[in-house]
Nucleic acid binder design. Structure first.
Lengths: 185, 185
DNA sequence: CCTTGAGTATACCGATCGGTATAGTCACTA
DNA sequence: TAGTGACTATACCGATCGGTATACTCAAGG
């Protein structure tokens, strides 16, 4: 990844997330990144490929964030570490995600199932589901598959409602519900 | 609402939802509705106003659908009627909502808080939250506010994950969790 | 030394964007 | 019968869209 490409990807990440994908032209991205359009196309090939890269990069940062928050507290009980995912989301929402899940937003703008970005979206959600299940298993949950799914529903629901401003303490609320679900097990 | 305007709104509803708002031009809408661009602008004034109307119309249909499903079974216990909202969503997803919540998708494309469509989005979510709370009260839930919020999280989470294809039986799963939450009360 | 890759600057392409202007048709109604 | 509102047809506007072409500079490396 060349320095110019790095700048392009960083700028694209900000503009795409803040304004929506279709609303941002490649001209604006190149200009903001102090790069010519030619360089942008030499590095990324097309806007669609750039979109996919944007999503991939964001997914990487999200995974690192979650894993960092959870893996940091190894002395906690596995059950509490499972709930840490909600704390990770709360931090993420405040700093990087005020406009909701970038992948859900991208899905709204990419109806074509063949778009290169769609695979990244699928992978992002699948990873989170798998991660939740792993944590659930470590916490001794009997039906880890079902609980992980339920937690995913809560996380996604909290993200949406929080970004819409309907439910102020959405993530905290979701965490409480999650705690109850785990105690039921 | 003139016949031409009606056609425009119907076509806009389909194209906006299926393809995303920014991806659809007024030219395409007018053409598909067998209407000239002039007529479209005479009736709606601007694309932004048309977007707001599209959302308003869809909100109306959604509310009618939910109320119809719930209000139909007056002989059910209030608790079971509360859970009927999940059945209403499941039907809605299968027939009208395969690409997820139109309002969440619109929010992704309308970052400007002053856009006329944004108010419609807020109203749609607020209505559902209020409706859930009313049903919860009728079901004798002690903290109806909190339960309604939790149910909203589950509904929104189920909508998102179902449309993304990550969790096949998302709405059914959400309903099960909802049932558990109600029983805890 | 000379090639290669990364970069700049600029101009261009056809297509489409949201929106407007002009002129005319038709049916209903005061 | 004269006017009004809904509509069609068509042409146009400046701006922007994603993407390409040409010509050039410059630093690094075999």
């Amino acid at each position: 990844m060349t320095p110019a490409a790095e700048r392009v990807l960083e700028v694209a990440g900000k503009l795409f997330y803040d304004n929506g994908i279709h609303a941002v032209g490649v001209e604006a991205i190149a200009s903001e990144a102090n790069v010519t359009k030619k360089t942008l196309y030499d590095r990324f090939g097309s806007k669609d490929a750039l979109i996919a890269q944007y999503l991939r990069r964001r997914d990487e940062r999200w995974r690192e964030h979650v894993v960092r928050v959870v893996e940091q507290r190894t002395r906690m009980t596995p059950t509490r570490r499972l709930l840490l995912v909600f704390d990770a989301l709360e931090q993420w929402m405040a700093t990087e995600n005020p406009r909701g899940c970038a992948f859900v937003n991208a899905q709204a703008e990419l109806p074509d199932a063949g778009h290169p970005g769609r695979e990244v979206i699928r992978e992002q959600k699948q990873w989170l589901l798998d991660y939740l299940r792993t944590l659930a298993r470590e916490a001794g949950i009997r039906n880890s598959r079902k609980l992980a799914t339920s937690l995913l529903l809560l996380l996604e629901g909290a993200t949406v409602t929080a970004s819409l401003g309907v439910v102020p303490g959405a993530v905290g609320n979701a965490k409480e519900v999650a705690k109850q679900l785990i105690e039921l097990n």
